[in-house]
Amino acid sequence: MDEFYLIDSPSVEKLKKLKDEYSNLDITSVLLYLELQKAYKKMKLNHDVLLQNFDLSESKFTIMMLLSHEKDMLLSPSELSKKIGSKKSTITGVLKGLEKKEFVKRIVLPHDKRTNYVQLTDFGLEKLNEFLPHNYKIVSKIFDVFSVEEKEQFYELANKLKNNLEKDDLF
């Protein structure tokens, strides 16, 4: 399914009229939600274009980053699945794509022949190191409208929002 990008957000006046019908409507929260949603979608769109320029996807990049921070750049698919919060079957498809490009390889360890492990290859690490400066540049550029203090405050607020979203009783 295609993602929608809402350009025409409801106005404050429109929301005030809706408030008569829905008493629990918090106008500021709705406006903030829509602005965050639009900002996220725009960031994702820009990041996806950058990833595509390097023949990567967000999931491939994430797996490569996780592997790059591990001892011997090695993890089992189930460990990757836990770290990403995704089904092992989903990870398997991404790993096949990474293997095909020779960014990762499967390894059987002598002490654990039951499990295939995944290791970032030297070629995969080179690809990651080629991509990262561009990644960090775009991330910095996204937030360069904020001062250091504003970024720190934004980070704290975003973390507070994430923690609230992780509550079981939210929905």
Rank of each mutant, 00 (worst) to 15 (best):
G97D: 11
T115A: 00
N24F: 13
L109H: 08
V30Q: 05
E152R: 13
A39K: 10
E156S: 10
Y5Q: 09
R106D: 00
K87F: 06
S140H: 11
D20L: 13
F103A: 07
N46R: 15
L18T: 05
L80V: 01
K160R: 13
H69Q: 12
E99G: 07
V104L: 03
T121R: 06
F103N: 08
K137Y: 09
L31P: 04
S81G: 02
Y117R: 01
S86C: 06
K41R: 14
E70Y: 00
T92M: 04
D55A: 10
N24M: 08
H134Y: 14
K87P: 07
I107S: 00
S57E: 03
S78D: 05
K101T: 07
T62N: 03
K162F: 14
L125Q: 12
G85R: 01
S29W: 10
L18P: 07
L25W: 03
T92C: 02
P133T: 11
K127R: 15
D26V: 13
A39L: 12
K82E: 08
L109D: 06
H47M: 15
K160H: 14
H111L: 07
S57N: 01
E79T: 12
K83Y: 02
K87Y: 09
D169P: 04
I107C: 00
I63S: 00
D112Q: 06
K38I: 01
E99M: 12
K71E: 08
D122S: 11
K162L: 15
P110I: 06
F154C: 06
L128C: 08
L31N: 10
K141N: 14
F131P: 07
L15N: 05
V94H: 03
L132I: 13
G85F: 04
L34K: 09
S59Q: 08
L32Q: 10
K101L: 10
F54Y: 11
D2R: 13
I107Y: 02
H69N: 10
Q119W: 03
Y33D: 04
S59L: 06
G97H: 07
S11V: 04
N163V: 09
L34Q: 09
E58H: 10
S147K: 11
K167L: 13
N164G: 14
I142R: 14
L74W: 01
Q37G: 05
K83N: 08
F143Q: 12
G85H: 03
K137W: 06
I63G: 00
Y136R: 13
H47E: 11
I138P: 05
S9P: 10
E99Y: 04
E126H: 09
K96T: 08
K17I: 11
L120N: 00
L120Q: 04
D8Y: 12
K100E: 14
F123N: 14
V12T: 15
I142G: 03
V108T: 14
E21F: 13
Y40D: 05
I142D: 10
L95M: 02
